[in-house]
Simulated assay, not measured.
Amino acid sequence: MELLKHDDVTRKIIGCAMRVHTALGNGFQEVIYQRALEIEMALDGLAFEREKEMPIYYRDVEIGTRRVDFFVSGLIMVELKAIIELEDVHLAQSINYLEAYNMEIGLLLNFGSKSLMFKRLLNKKFKIV
């Protein structure tokens, strides 16, 4: 079985998210899960930045900024949701962020359902700089 890129880090992040969801369940606002995940990832020794503001460019012109929930180990973008069900629009939004920030790997975590939901995302337009 082929390992996915940065699988060790994504597994650690998902493990942290599972511990948070087990402890809190569903029904809280996204910011509550974000704060709990921050504590859990720090305890697990993961290096991360929370709510890092990043510029968005169009044709090399900065047109705005967006804050991503977490950048982990400088490798993985993590976007949180606290909604009943993930829809295609949430997946598309997260992939757009990956492309805008030129990040190769992302995780979309949803704490709003009875079980933690997660999607591993791959930026097919990723460029090594």
Rank of each mutant, 00 (worst) to 15 (best):
L122S: 08
R67K: 14
I32V: 13
E53C: 13
L121W: 07
F126K: 03
A42S: 07
I105F: 06
I84S: 13
E38N: 11
L107D: 01
Q93S: 13
N96P: 10
E49C: 13
A42H: 04
M117Q: 10
Y97I: 07
D44E: 11
Y57V: 05
R11P: 02
L4C: 08
L80H: 06
N102R: 09
Y97E: 01
D44L: 15
L98M: 06
M77H: 07
T10Y: 12
E40P: 06
G15W: 10
Q29D: 02
G25T: 02
Q93H: 15
E49K: 14
L86I: 03
E85I: 06
L108K: 04
I56E: 01
V61A: 05
S115E: 11
P55A: 14
I14G: 08
Y97T: 02
A23Q: 04
K124F: 07
K125G: 06
V78K: 08
P55R: 12
L116G: 07
D8I: 11
R66G: 01
K52H: 06
T65N: 08
K125P: 04
A92V: 01
H90T: 00
M117I: 09
R19W: 00
L116K: 09
N102T: 09
A36T: 04
K81Q: 09
M41R: 11
L121Q: 05
A92Q: 12
E62Y: 07
E99L: 13
V61E: 00
E99P: 08
V31R: 15
E49I: 10
D60A: 15
E87I: 10
A47P: 01
K52M: 10
M103A: 13
F48T: 03
E51L: 12
A92S: 09
A42D: 01
E49P: 02
T22F: 08
S73L: 13
L43K: 09
I39H: 07
E38M: 14
Y58M: 10
E51A: 13
E53S: 15
F111P: 04
R67H: 11
H6M: 10
I14E: 00
F126R: 03
V61W: 00
L122D: 00
N96M: 13
A23N: 04
I83Q: 05
N96V: 05
G106V: 03
V89K: 11
I63M: 03
